[in-house]
């Protein structure tokens, strides 16, 4: 089971807003998934190294040189997809509260 307070807190961390009905539904759904994964607690993982990547890999290095990945045409297309902009800048709501 997961507490409804936990659902609210996690949703907040994930920048999701849930209404009362959704909170109840998600509490039930997440509870059933957590109950499902509970089985993992029976597994003895003492001394086992975690697998953190999809394949054995080494760090990949390249020279630290400035390079432009996108030409100006592509950049223009990206700017056109901004929900809100002023000239070539992303426009956002104020980040600091004015007091």
């Amino acid at each position: 089971m997961i507490d409804i307070k936990d659902v609210e807190y996690m949703a907040g961390l994930a920048r999701l807003e849930l209404n009362t009905e959704e909170k109840k539904k998600f509490q039930k759904d997440l509870g059933s998934v957590l109950e499902f994964v509970e089985k993992l607690k029976r597994l003895d993982v003492e001394g086992i190294e975690p697998t953190t990547v999809g394949a054995e890999s080494a760090n990949v290095m390249r020279a630290d040189e400035p390079r432009s990945k996108y030409d100006s045409e592509t950049v223009k297309k990206m700017l056109e997809q901004l929900p809100d902009r002023k000239d070539d800048f992303v426009k956002v709501k104020s980040i600091l509260n004015k007091n």
């Binding site: 920048r15 807003e17 709501k93 980040i95």
Partner: peptide, 24 residues
């Protein structure tokens, strides 16, 4: 996917509101 850089955006009163509304 934050409602700022691309994709669906629902503007709120402040930036946190924009995140919450766009993502929800």
């Amino acid at each position: 996917f934050d409602g700022i850089r691309y994709g669906f955006s629902k503007q709120g009163g402040n930036i946190l509101d924009t995140y919450l509304k766009s993502r929800s």
